[in-house]
Design a protein around this nucleic acid. Structure first.
Lengths: 203, 203
DNA sequence: CCTATTTTTGACCATTCGGTTAAACTTTAT
DNA sequence: ATAAAGTTTAACCGAATGGTCAAAAATAGG
């Protein structure tokens, strides 16, 4: 039954997403995934031949979820400031629902950079780059942003939204010491980060 | 011979640092560490009883190297702006020599937050916190920084310096696409990040 | 030089882990 | 109803892995 098959494959995939995200490629166990999906371990290998196949599938989906979803924001027809505000709001909200995703992706790429190579080429950062340079020519000039500082600003924007989640484990411990609530901090960050960047780039 | 013993234990430890930093706790193999140290695997267990013992020792040392070394900067007798400039210069230079350290630490803490708990309590972030609040009372007022936004600013500073290294794997691939050189980008970042922060917090 | 102690090794062990196989069970089509 | 095809399982396999052990080699002390 194709309905049932879809269900089983989907159950496996969802279980794999959770386990890989939590334990990483090397830490994850096929048995754990099978248990979580409520099936026999052999069935894992029936649907996804090897651990690497399964991981590849999961990783590709999660990475696309992370990258593909948010690069289009910068291609919209908005002012630079509006894009920045929009990005932080959407991106941080997304990570509130997927808090372990950033750490997982960063870690796996660091451990195996060539795996992502094709995937990232697909995302066409070059186009995004050119779009920004073209679409905001006058704004960039107004903000005194050169082609040399643009990478700095782009990575800065990424930093501000991703880092709190990539460092969630530490921050929660430190914050506890200071009486700061992580969730409130994150909620506040959506606006703070946008204002911070805009303030910094405004002459 | 205590001289020789020191040498062997040190060789093991250094090998372990490299392997753990590169492969993570779950990815690292005792055999790999033994090979790298040029000794028998049994000798590993003679000096450090279990993999967890060895990892604990390595992790504690590396984490202290990362945290302990730079929190004192904020206790020095400098203006806030000077501290910010000083921090970025020192911290980024340190990570240029230990580029894999940030990713390693973030990842291991996320995978096992309670391991770091005691370690982080030792660093006394609370003191650092109070020192800043006290020492820069007038400057904070001048910059319009409240007790609510201070966590945002502190984590922002950490973000800007740590993230490029935690995300090194991705950035190198993206940069290659754009004709940007990672090392030059990092060198530039020392000043850029400091200026960026100062610009953002200045009224 | 001889003995006691410490360091180092090779061989080995138990368990875990990714993966396979053959058979049972289900579904589909005729 | 029945055969063919697809799905699921229990049992099993070989390699890898963390860890142990007893004996050998090196070192230190008298």
């Amino acid at each position: 039954m194709s309905e049932n098959e879809k269900l089983t494959e989907e159950r496996i995939f969802e279980a794999a997403e959770i386990v890989f995200e939590e334990e990483g490629l090397t830490g994850a166990r096929m048995q754990t995934i099978a248990d979580r999906a409520g099936i026999n371990k052999a069935l894992l290998h029936y649907y996804f031949r090897t651990k690497d196949h399964l991981f590849e599938a999961v990783f590709t989906k999660l990475a696309q979820k992370m990258f593909m979803k948010f690069t289009p924001i910068f291609e919209k027809d908005l002012s630079l400031e509006e894009k920045i505000k929009f990005f932080f709001r959407e991106h941080i909200t997304f990570m509130q629902h997927n808090p372990k995703l950033p750490g997982f992706i960063l870690n796996e790429i660091n451990h195996n950079p060539q795996r992502i190579q094709k995937l990232i080429k697909n995302i066409e950062f070059r186009n995004l780059w050119l779009t920004i340079l073209d679409q905001h020519k006058d704004e960039l000039y107004k903000y005194n942003i050169t082609e040399e500082t643009l990478p700095q600003i782009m990575t800065t924007i990424a930093s501000l939204s991703v880092f709190p989640f990539a460092a969630k484990g530490i921050l929660e411990v430190i914050f506890e010491n200071l009486g700061v609530d992580f969730d409130k901090y994150i909620e506040l960050r959506k606006e703070f980060a946008a204002d911070f960047v805009i303030k910094a780039i405004t002459k």
